[in-house]
């Protein structure tokens, strides 16, 4: 009887200890969030909030070399796959990517299926966050960086200008959010936003989005640029409406 009592007691003590440490963790989380609020650090608030729900963000994602979810597939790493996907978005063919990486199509296909499934099935979002980071780092991939797309979309924008635009998107956050606004405004006016990018900047959606992963994953920047993007969207919307003569169906109705 005593044995059972002690067993229960030790069990209870363990539970109590667990609860205390959990309570302590919650308090730590709250403290961290409060501190982040006080400093106006949106990113920190988001990171801590996500962690308490069991998720990672692009800032807190980890690349443990022993993580089974991040093991290369036929030698194709998550960096290879993400950078390859980014290049396909620029107009490279899968065959080009395979040649550059030194793999064959069945290997690439299997890697693609495996990486996509890993991202979909990962409850912590770690894999997709690691992938997103590398999607924006194609310029640092030594085998894929210089690849010229076989199926580059036709544009009248000269390649030097397109490269300059891409550079500006990466370094000038105002420009990046302006272009996001332009794309939204284009779709709102029945214009193909993706085609507009090709015609005006000489860039594909994948290139534009890839150039801004660092902006889009920084909540401080996002919060800071929200109003600016809205304002720019309005300006572009007016411009597109005027250019295409579409306008709003309600333009002729006045109070």
């Amino acid at each position: 009887m005593f044995k059972k009592f002690f067993k229960d007691l030790s069990g209870n003590l363990e539970d109590i200890a667990k609860n205390v440490s959990k309570g302590q963790q919650d308090t730590d989380t709250n403290d961290e969030i409060l501190k982040a609020y006080a400093n106006g650090d949106m990113n920190k608030i988001f990171d801590v909030g996500a962690a308490s729900a069991g998720y990672t963000t692009m800032n807190t994602a980890t690349e443990d070399p022993n993580d089974p979810q991040l093991q290369p597939v036929h030698g194709i790493t998550v960096f290879d796959y993400a950078a390859g996907a980014a290049k396909i978005g620029e107009g490279c063919t899968e065959e080009q990517i395979c040649r550059a990486l030194g793999v064959e199509r069945p290997q690439w296909d299997e890697a693609q299926t495996t990486w996509n499934n890993r991202m979909r099935d990962d409850k912590t979002f770690n894999v997709i966050n690691v992938y997103s980071k590398y999607f924006g780092m194609v310029k640092e991939h030594e085998k894929l960086e210089g690849l010229k797309p076989d199926n580059a979309p036709t544009t009248t924008v000269v390649s030097e200008d397109a490269a300059a635009n891409l550079q500006r998107l990466e370094t000038d956050k105002h420009y990046f959010f302006e272009i996001q606004a332009a794309m939204q405004a284009a779709y709102d006016n029945g214009i193909d936003g993706a085609q507009w990018l090709i015609d005006n900047l000489g860039l594909t959606v994948a290139q534009v989005n890839g150039s801004g992963t660092k902006w889009m994953n920084d909540f401080n920047t996002m919060a800071q640029m929200m109003d600016y993007q809205e304002q720019k969207k309005k300006e572009y919307s007016e411009r597109f409406a005027k250019e295409s003569g579409t306008g709003s169906v309600a333009d002729d109705i006045n109070f």
Partner: peptide, 29 residues
């Protein structure tokens, strides 16, 4: 994509109607 572009355009027109009505109501009425 063409269909979705058409859909986005139509939704934007509905939005424009709502914004116009709401703007006038808030600012002028």
């Amino acid at each position: 994509r063409s269909y979705l572009q058409f859909k986005a355009g139509m939704i934007a027109q509905f939005n424009a109607i709502m914004q116009k009505g709401s703007g006038v109501y808030q600012k002028e009425v």
